[in-house]
Design a protein around this nucleic acid. Sequence first.
DNA 1: TATGAATGAGTCTTCATTCAT
DNA 2: AATGAATGAAGACTCATTCAT
Lengths: 193, 193, 193, 193
Amino acid sequence: MGEKSEQKKQLILETARRIFMEKGYKDVTMKDIVDACQISRGGLYLYFSGTQELFRAVLDADEAEADDVFSGAVSEDAMAADVLLLFLKEQKKEILRRKDDLSLATYEYYFAHGASQEENSLRGKFEDAVGALSQLIEIGIQNGEFYEVDAQAAASNIMFALEGLRICARTMGVTEKMVDDELYTLMSGLVAD
Amino acid sequence: MGEKSEQKKQLILETARRIFMEKGYKDVTMKDIVDACQISRGGLYLYFSGTQELFRAVLDADEAEADDVFSGAVSEDAMAADVLLLFLKEQKKEILRRKDDLSLATYEYYFAHGASQEENSLRGKFEDAVGALSQLIEIGIQNGEFYEVDAQAAASNIMFALEGLRICARTMGVTEKMVDDELYTLMSGLVAD
Amino acid sequence: MGEKSEQKKQLILETARRIFMEKGYKDVTMKDIVDACQISRGGLYLYFSGTQELFRAVLDADEAEADDVFSGAVSEDAMAADVLLLFLKEQKKEILRRKDDLSLATYEYYFAHGASQEENSLRGKFEDAVGALSQLIEIGIQNGEFYEVDAQAAASNIMFALEGLRICARTMGVTEKMVDDELYTLMSGLVAD
Amino acid sequence: MGEKSEQKKQLILETARRIFMEKGYKDVTMKDIVDACQISRGGLYLYFSGTQELFRAVLDADEAEADDVFSGAVSEDAMAADVLLLFLKEQKKEILRRKDDLSLATYEYYFAHGASQEENSLRGKFEDAVGALSQLIEIGIQNGEFYEVDAQAAASNIMFALEGLRICARTMGVTEKMVDDELYTLMSGLVAD
DNA sequence: TATGAATGAGTCTTCATTCAT
DNA sequence: AATGAATGAAGACTCATTCAT
């Protein structure tokens, strides 16, 4: 039964994920989940005690299967600039994607439950990304592809700018051109093109 | 009588502003406002039809008294670098300020009511800031203070990075050092220090 | 001032009448009246203590200027059948008129405030109409225009049938043909045509 | 469990029916029902989303168990006149019954929700009654009990007059004598007595 | 007379959460 | 494990009515 149980939990998580993408975090009610899962009210509570726990679980599941964008790429003999370009293109897609994206719900979640909490995984994620990016830039510099910049600072700057683009896209709206221009600016800081 | 009425409206706006700073946007109820204002339920509705209208009014009031950071500074013979530094310091303060700040509520408001709406003043604000910053950088370049960069692109980059810092501060949390480092990186792109 | 006062009262009554025709009785609020009259809240209460009193006044005003349909007609040497026909045509118009009519509001008013009340003027109105109709039929009989029926009974029957048509029009809806047919039936009871 | 649920729904319907009879349609609030049913606020909404839906359900339940007054009677060899008399007596009782009657609420309901709606079952009911009555009269004519009148027209006339009596009873009030007289008039149109 | 701001009671509706089965 | 009926608290909103000016 433990297996069946696990299956059901997975089903709930997948469904919840979809709903969080559609409605953000705060607007989602247990009823929304129950309806979408075709599960009983009480049944849902057997697995999750509320939307907070549910969203936490959705985030954790994400993390578990998070794929490091660079891990594979960098080890090969691909050019660092190409890897970076690929990464930025991926980010662009995410930034411009209006729905099908957990970023809005995630922002709402952390607004509500504090930047203080220990389990704030966002920070770790961000630092991992900065670290990986930094390494990539380092490699690029050694390859002679990139200018001799402070890799760590450059990586941070890129990440903050990307976050800025993302939040701007979710609030004031951004055009594709705005994103392209900014990404171009970011690349220009590293390499002549 | 219109005067007294106006006073009350102001009182409500100020109180609401405080509450929005404390609780963000979505968690604020009309009852919260009512209690804080020591006003009757019906009384509040005489002035505002709901939290959305209230927050809109708070934002509008902000805008009305918004002071252009550069306007005064630039026209004087202060160095562009000094003006920029001042601006960044101001931003740093805002970014690190945990409460007493409408940014969280504002994000929530635009999450809820769409980046699409015509009355989205965020976009205008952002572009105004980019414009002013761009001008400032231009002046700095002409003064020989700054490198010969693309002023527009540099300004955009700074603004996106600042937004990134702000949202990171509100979600994953940032240390003062992180902010300082990033601001230093931003300055470094313009001037050797 | 008494004159001015009277004018204002008239204005209120006329406006209220229009609103009662539009919305019926129960849905009308003092606010509706206030808004439509462009008068102050308190001002309205100086004249009328609530919608009940207001509607009562509207009804009373109606009564005061109620014109007896037959009074003029009968005294002339018009044929009784023609007068009756005219009356029925007038009734048909009223029955089919969807709006611009107080009947719905009147029904609602008496539903709410009882068929019992002393000031129930409906009964008097009805009996007056039966009386007049009865007289008319009597004359018609004496003229040899109508069959020799019980005038009183015939008059009552016509009035009940008209009320039936009216309420059916307001609830289940009636077609013009249904009304025409019924009116024809009513006439047939009195005269061959 | 569906059974218990159904029982509760029935209980609510019966209670609601009683309340609608007492207070009409418009004055009834969900709270009235809740209090009368000794149920929780939220519990009621599990079954009905508002008073409109509730009243609709009450009407539908009525219709489901509606017994055709004539169906049985006519097929037997009872005299048509007797059947008609029985029907009119039944109607008289209903008309004079002050409370314990849904007619007032029904009128209010249709005032509020339009004579236009597709689901207006009143029209169908009325036409069914006219049809049955018409048949009955036809039979009476063939039996030689009734005058040779236009059965359809006579039936319509009776129904309109009954509706007229009903609404008059609910608004201006009618005496038993008034009803008797009118019913006598209606019979007189068909048969000498 | 006249104003219109203010009140507070009342209704609607939804939600998280529990619990008997 | 699972169900879904039931609860009650909470928030939105409206209205009749009053009252200081």
